[in-house]
Simulated assay, not measured.
Amino acid sequence: MPRRTATMLASTLILIALLCAGVLIKVPYSEMSPGPTVNTLGKVGGDPVLQITGHKTYETSGNLNMTTVRVTGADYNMNLIEAVYGWLGHDSVVVPHDTLYPDGKTEEQSTQENAEEFSQSQESAKVAALTELGIPVSSRVVVSTVLKDSPSQGELHAGDVIKAVDGTAVKQPEDVAKLVTKHKPGQDVTFTVIPAKTAAAAEKAGKEPEGTEKITITTEKAPKENRAIVGIQAGTDHTFPFEIDIKLADVGGPSAGLMFSLGIVDKLTPGQLTGGKFIAGTGTIDDKGKVGPIGGINMKLVGARDAGARYFLTPDDNCEAAASDTPDGLTLVRVKNIDDATKSLEKIRTGDAAGLPSCSTG
């Protein structure tokens, strides 16, 4: 066999061996890529994403798209070739597996956590939108979770309204932990609550819940800490003056909060918030309308650009990363809260793009 032919054959065999090894070698990485975007002013599966009942609504136009990131599952074992391809690609990013699934979190646990965050983001989006419009929303501190085998199991229940702890009125969820930890482990703490069933019946009737009960619970020592706990997590529940239903399946996490809130504002106000333009964005939102950072910003920018967006509402804390790799044709708009966002939408609508708050790399 001629030397040149032998060399080419050997090189081919080595290449095949390397490719096979690349397929067989598993690496501890996961991939993030642009996910679908959804217009919060539009429909999905024939149903409006935002359905408002019991209050006058107005026609909308244009797009206020929430954006998503697609990630490989917790149980997916990426091979070396896939990792290298992802590293070299521009529209995806390869990250350590523990970045997406820390502490050995399973896909089921991650899905459940994302679903809970998505549900909470919807509630906060409603509160932020109505507050922005000056529409009153009543709120109360409730038991969100009762831990299994904790002192509170069987005594307190999810949905119980917490009015006071040891006679001290509770106004914020964090007040509960502060009052409980004033005790030493093994001491009693007294909760004044409205039972969940009573509260639910009152909410259904459009009334404020009444009728309290006092429940005494013996605290226990927190794992690895010398402080008293009762084994509950407190949260906030709201009563809205009319029904706002957000329908969007197969989406998780809190990052759509800003865009949901803007969609609600648009539907509840005359005129058109977008002026018919295609605007996308992302960001968590709290009850007070503050916009928080999210993960996968660069993937969301690509998804928004590919969907046709011209402007992207960007959380302040994500601005520097977004500005470092902005897709052509997409204008970044810095937002810190819902008021910033609505004012920027007004500038976009009136053609005052030069006055928009922008993002920079430093």
Rank of each mutant, 00 (worst) to 15 (best):
P2T: 14
A6S: 10
S11K: 02
L19E: 08
C20A: 13
A21I: 14
G22T: 02
L24C: 00
P28Q: 01
P34A: 05
T60P: 01
S61H: 09
S61N: 12
G62P: 05
M66Q: 08
M66N: 03
T67C: 10
V71L: 01
T72E: 13
G73C: 12
G73Y: 14
D75W: 00
L80A: 13
V84E: 06
Y85D: 14
Y85G: 11
L88D: 04
H90M: 12
H90W: 13
S92D: 08
Y101V: 09
G104L: 05
K105Y: 04
Q109C: 07
Q112T: 10
Q112L: 12
E113G: 11
E113Y: 12
F118D: 09
S119H: 15
S121L: 08
L130G: 05
I135E: 04
I135K: 11
S139Y: 05
V142Q: 03
K148W: 09
K148S: 15
S152W: 04
G154L: 06
V161W: 03
I162S: 00
A164R: 08
G167R: 11
G167N: 11
D175C: 07
K178A: 14
T181A: 14
H183D: 12
H183Y: 04
H183Q: 12
K184Q: 11
P185V: 00
D188K: 01
K197N: 13
A199H: 00
K204A: 09
K204L: 01
P209F: 10
E213A: 13
I215A: 10
I217G: 06
E220C: 09
P223F: 01
V230I: 15
I232L: 07
A234G: 00
T239F: 00
T239Q: 09
I244M: 01
I244T: 05
V251D: 13
G252K: 06
G253F: 05
L258Y: 04
I264W: 00
V265W: 08
D266H: 05
D266S: 10
L268R: 08
P270N: 09
Q272Y: 14
G275S: 10
G276K: 10
F278H: 13
F278V: 12
G281I: 10
T284N: 03
K288R: 11
G295Y: 06
I297V: 15
N298W: 07
M299I: 07
K300A: 12
G303L: 04
R305K: 15
A307L: 09
G308F: 03
T314V: 04
T314L: 01
A321G: 02
A323F: 02
G329L: 10
L332A: 11
R334Y: 11
K336E: 15
N337M: 02
A341C: 02
A341L: 00
T342Q: 10
L345S: 08
E346S: 11
K347H: 09
R349V: 00
G355V: 08
S358Q: 15
G362F: 11
